[in-house]
Nucleic acid binder design. Sequence first.
DNA 1: ATCATATATGTAATGATTACATTTAGGGAA
DNA 2: TTCCCTAAATGTAATCATTACATATATGAT
Lengths: 135, 135
Amino acid sequence: MDSLTIAEQLTVHGIKPSYPRIQIYKYLYTKKNHPTVDDIYNDLIEEIPTLSKTTVYNTLNLFIEAKLVKSFNLDKNEKRYEIIIHDHSHFQCERCNKIYDIPCDDINLLPKEYEGFKVNEKQIFLKGICEECLK
Amino acid sequence: MDSLTIAEQLTVHGIKPSYPRIQIYKYLYTKKNHPTVDDIYNDLIEEIPTLSKTTVYNTLNLFIEAKLVKSFNLDKNEKRYEIIIHDHSHFQCERCNKIYDIPCDDINLLPKEYEGFKVNEKQIFLKGICEECLK
DNA sequence: ATCATATATGTAATGATTACATTTAGGGAA
DNA sequence: TTCCCTAAATGTAATCATTACATATATGAT
């Protein structure tokens, strides 16, 4: 997806496509690495020397409002962000810390006693050792 | 579980049963409300006027080391703590914010492409509207 | 009772996040 | 173009959870 289509994508969701906004969206879209605000800021500051962390926060919160992006917490008190694509779980390796996206079938996680509950969102976070590190 | 058995429980896990430690453990054990550090501190300060928040943090981290307690994050950057009993999910109601423990059968969440991964821990966090609030 | 060590406490530092006020940029109207 | 209005971006300072570290207190053995 090039900058033009990203701009369209943002516009469709009622967001004016400024340069920082496009770059942040593109970063999330192309990197797919569940970055923290720090990750995004440190990587984009070269491309956008005037970027501020506040802008990164504001932009991400704007994207979340627009349901383009979602945030989640792993263990640490530090939010991670990703483009909303399809439902999946996160697996974090305890050795290399890499985060894997795990496809997640549409399992019903509510036993029948809880069928009166309405689930709007589910987050599944797995920890363990990944295949690479087990070798 | 009275204070005596809590003291034994702690001793078995190599933790000297001081008064604050017993009270904090009892709090987690009897309340079962996924408290934050602030919750614990504010509720116990009446019983233990000399309690400090640092002690609450230290004690909880000690319990986690000993695998008596685990912590988890919901949406906010604020840890919640609970006694480790059996695997279960958390459901937080978006309206009343109450957190429900949802029994969670031992579902395998890894598709077969990921069967080389070793899962040590899983956390499932559901958001939605609870039955009470739907009425 | 004394001393060594474990436990608890207080203060200050850190790091993520937000609040708020200021500056900058972009899009119309004259 | 120039002026003006509003949206966007920025910087600074505040807030909140958590940890680091140094000090004080309590406990248990000798």
